[in-house]
Nucleic acid binder design. Structure first.
Lengths: 163, 163
DNA sequence: CCCGATTAGTTGTTGATACAACTAACGCTA
DNA sequence: TAGCGTTAGTTGTATCAACAACTAATCGGG
């Protein structure tokens, strides 16, 4: 009945630590951004993805897939960002079903002024305690896991590409 | 004005992949547990922490800190689990302000029958794509990050301990 | 022994996400 | 060009988490 392949002690310890970090990290990122920019990490991520896109514009579907959001979720978030003046919706010329989300100048400035604090948080909490070799190992290991979780390389498409 | 220490290309790539995994993993864990056991990952985690504790019992405060939950959040979750018969609240004898949360027999059975599927999901999505060396590196790197994020070793106290 | 401060926990409200249902537009085929 | 299936996006509802306010019990001086 029980043909479960349980984790070895080494695997268990690695997994336990990993899942702890996965639980803790979002809270760290969210609270710094919330405090300093009144942005959730996801909202910041949406703005950042747009800021790196040609014309600072992406289709809703493309943006959803790049941020791993469902379309309904993204639609709500973009509505909020639109109310705050950071994003603009424009009709898509080629396909009248589609909607383009464009980063406004105010949105661009928001990203520019928010990024340093965010980077500092990442550096302090994640990169700082790591050696150069650790960073290389992290990159390799996460690359392998990511290949499993996101084989299509949809997530964060602008930056993640290996090729 | 801009004395930000930006990320090097290597750091950026490692971070980008890491944050992608951090975004994707909770959804994977949640949906498997929701589908197979009607439990969120957090609910499962609460039950699992209790199952590993002496007398299958923990104070609310201790359970909150071990699961990185605020007390209000935990209180609500325990209420739900109590309604479903998996957990019982009992008054604490030594400190009448305190409440003990105890895993019931039904809760224990729930953990026992849910664990294999969960472990299988973890194995398939995280451990499978990794070599033995990768697992060791993951353990080391996460240990270092965790030491920064959770210096008190409160999270998952039963298993994470190094000593 | 009593009063302020702290600790433990619960409850209510507000905001965000998931899920489902819906509208609108495209595209293929007959 | 009519109709069916698919794709793009929005809107409404139910659930869960964060935050604040609250109650109750303990602790630590005077």
């Amino acid at each position: 009945m029980d043909d479960t392949r349980w984790l070895t002690p080494d695997e268990l310890r690695a997994w336990t630590r990993f899942v702890a970090v996965v639980e803790l990290l979002p809270g760290i990122l969210d609270s710094q951004l919330q405090r300093d920019a009144e942005l959730s990490h996801f909202e910041y991520f949406v703005l950042a993805m747009l800021s790196e896109s040609p014309q600072r514009t992406l289709r809703m579907t493309g943006l959803a897939s790049a941020t791993n959001a469902t379309l309904p979720r993204l639609s709500h978030v973009v509505s909020r960002l639109e109310k705050r003046g950071f994003v603009e919706r424009t009709a898509c010329a080629e396909d009248r079903r589609a909607t383009n989300a464009t980063l406004t100048d105010a949105g661009w400035r928001k990203v520019v002024e928010t990024a340093p604090g965010h980077v500092e948080t990442v550096r302090e909490n994640v990169l700082e305690p790591l050696t150069e070799e650790d960073v290389a190992d992290l990159d390799r290991v996460m690359g392998r896991v990511l290949a499993k979780l996101d084989p299509e390389h949809r997530f964060n498409a602008a930056v993640t590409r290996t090729d």
